[in-house]
Design a protein around this nucleic acid. Structure first.
Lengths: 404, 404
DNA sequence: GCTATTAAGTCAATCCGCTTGACTTAATTA
DNA sequence: TAATTAAGTCAAGCGGATTGACTTAATAGC
């Protein structure tokens, strides 16, 4: 019976796929443009007025869009704009970091409705999972107080944690080895009854930028994330790209010079971990963020020295990213306080000359992204929303019946 | 009237899009699996037997597929396998290099039916275009002798030339500045009456590997191309990725170390140009290829020294590519003779440890691709074929009526 | 050797969702 | 007040996948 399972082919599609795509296209158009009339949507999506009308009627019935006041603009019948209903869908996002974990609830438009954080016992996943499930339960209850339909409109749980995933030698202290081995997704799926997705933290950052930040509506953007480690989140062709094994963009472990295995990974020089080390701070310190903020504001010499060194490496990373991906823009994000991130951005100027240094650019080569430390949890939560509502190739195709 | 043109949205789709996609899926399945029965196709594509039957009937009428002998395999009615008809479609590929140009005709399955080459006057595009049009006309006539329907089945002209494209300072001698400014595509479209597409040479290599080489059916592969320059062709999510401005993968100009603008681009060390320089060969020499082949076979010390140096840099490039893209495999291709390419591949072993060095790999981390010097022209020709017949997201969407 | 079983493939009706073209509604312009 | 313009609806039509019953042709088992 399995003799044919080796045939490689893409899935076909049918009218359901068509309809699903068109619904998603409407939602994306409303997300990107704020409020649009049916006629606007018809023009923008190339569909007929009638098709749009039917779809909008459906979406309105499903509580995903709502009509606004009619507006008169020149000759002709006034139009009725529609906008997304934030309460149309919710998702929970979970950030698992080395020393703490955060959970948030976001709605369809990416607003954070509830948040909670807790310390995480390092290297004890089975204990940690209890903490996490408690956290999730907390924000979920909070959501229930906000919306009566919260449960039925909860589309999933997105998890973000430091990558890379699935390596052979995962005893590297940078990599949370115990967590890599723990069956986290299965445990969380069982514990919450939700669909669970996983991204690394840079991908989560990129997802956050895409839904509410600088990558909103940009098809080719790379998000350079300076956190405890360093990595790039890739928006290619308007979608998050995660590579063959979910590890694309993990540049933290890239060797900077062609000097062989002995070189220092980028991560060991341009990351908050290296900053903590440079400042003699404890990564588990509960007031780490405030301390960094204060030091950055005070232009502490040690901090400024680190910024200078990190900016040097990061400038080179931006050059490399531009050369390799040819993105429309590079977004610098960080778990660090905004003051620090902004100084880092400034220290990176002027950027190295590169292929991106072309005439007629509409977006800056490098810009500052969200610096809120909750952005990773936000991006984690945005992933299920995006999966459920954004137009994607795979959303058109018929789903393989037999699992996966 | 143009007030609404600023609305950003993806196109919707309809039954035509569905049908177009399903046709493409059938063709891809036959390309990847050789010959399949309608029942096989139905299982592989998730469509019903009936839908597949209708589509196959269409494709057969259009001369794109043909039935083979029925085969008996166990119980049940014997199945009738179908395969692609090579003569179902043709495309012309054009490679424009610094000193020469090549044109080929390929068919639907990627076989080369005709080929021609000529020298190209450097920095004189208006003269060069005459040579090119003559070359194209030649292979086109040759094709007409092979197939009576050649003209109606000619899907387009694919052009491959060294990138990057559209830079500010295009007076770099590496970059064929005069050609960068010349309205090549428009001239060729007018001169041939064909649809014209452009890729850089590494992308063409990747396209060639995808249609007939090591990337056949692989969703995530990077093609490292060592030609006169060096660049990477990116197959991401089963499609060629070209970035925001068509320059993705142009790693030749990437600086190797974070030493700032003064560093040596990779291209100046690991490319055939550097080999020619190292050997004191003239890049315009008509017998360059044979000379290189002879030297490589004889294990000439100078060649071996260059190989050692280039391999050192390339090993690092592979590490970087693996770290950044997380591909299933990296394919080494080159305009150099196979002996040389193979020695280069061997000299790159052992590869640097990287994220790709994981258990349970099904494909090698690095493998040798097509070494035929005509592979770029082949890839150029494969692009229109792929555009016309491979399943792609954009092929499903309604096309914007008003051009582009 | 007969029968049951299995699988490929067809037939005809149905269904779903977009399209078409005429029509209604409601505003501005002249 | 009439002409024009644009938003949006109505109802019939159409294209293409689905459905389920049916036919055909092979092997497996008794």
């Amino acid at each position: 019976m399995n003799e044919n399972s080796s045939i490689r082919a893409k899935s076909g599609t049918n009218q359901e796929g068509t309809s699903a795509h068109n619904r998603r296209v409407m939602i994306e158009a409303l997300r990107l443009n704020g409020a649009l009339s049916r006629a606007d949507l018809a023009r923008a999506t190339q569909l007929t007025k009638q098709a749009v009308s039917n779809i909008i009627e459906d979406l309105e019935r499903d509580g995903l869009v709502v009509a606004l006041e009619t507006v008169r603009k020149g000759r002709g019948q006034p139009s009725t704009p529609y906008r997304l209903v934030p309460e149309g869908a919710f998702a929970i996002g979970l950030q698992i970091d080395r020393h703490l974990t955060r959970a948030v609830v976001v709605d369809l438009v990416g607003s954070v409705l509830a948040r909670a954080e807790a310390n995480l016992p390092l290297d004890e996943p089975s204990e940690g999972v209890k903490v996490i499930l408690g956290l999730i339960d907390g924000v979920r209850r909070e959501l229930a107080g906000i919306s009566s339909q919260s449960e039925s409109r909860l589309v999933g749980l997105g998890v973000a944690m430091p990558g890379p995933f699935g390596l052979k030698n995962s005893d590297d202290k940078w990599m949370m080895p115990a967590w890599q081995k723990f069956p986290l997704l299965e445990t969380l799926a069982a514990g919450t009854g939700l669909n669970v997705g996983l991204q690394n933290d840079a991908a989560a950052c990129a997802t956050a930028e895409r839904i509410v930040g600088a990558a909103h509506g940009v098809d080719h953007a790379v998000c350079l994330y300076v956190g405890y480690g360093i990595a790039a989140g890739l928006i290619l062709n308007g979608e998050l790209y995660t590579g063959g094994n979910g590890n694309a963009g993990e540049i933290g472990r890239a060797l900077l010079s062609p000097a062989g295995p002995g070189s220092t990974p980028l991560e060991h020089r341009a990351s908050l971990a290296s900053l903590y080390q440079h400042l003699g701070l404890d990564a588990a310190d509960a007031h780490l963020y405030e301390r960094m903020d204060a030091l950055a504001l005070a232009e502490d010499p040690k901090v400024m020295a680190w910024i200078k060194g990190a900016a040097h490496d990061l400038r080179w990373s931006v050059h490399l990213i531009e050369t390799i991906f040819d993105p429309q823009t590079v977004i610098l994000t960080s778990g660090a306080p905004e003051t620090l991130a902004r100084r880092l951005l400034e220290a990176m100027q002027p950027l190295l000359p590169s292929i991106a240094d072309r005439p007629g650019r509409s977006l800056p080569r490098l810009q500052l992204g969200i610096t809120d430390p909750w952005s990773i949890a936000l991006g984690a939560a945005a992933e299920p929303i995006s999966r459920a509502f954004d137009p994607r190739f795979s959303a058109i195709l018929k789903t393989r019946a037999g699992g996966l």
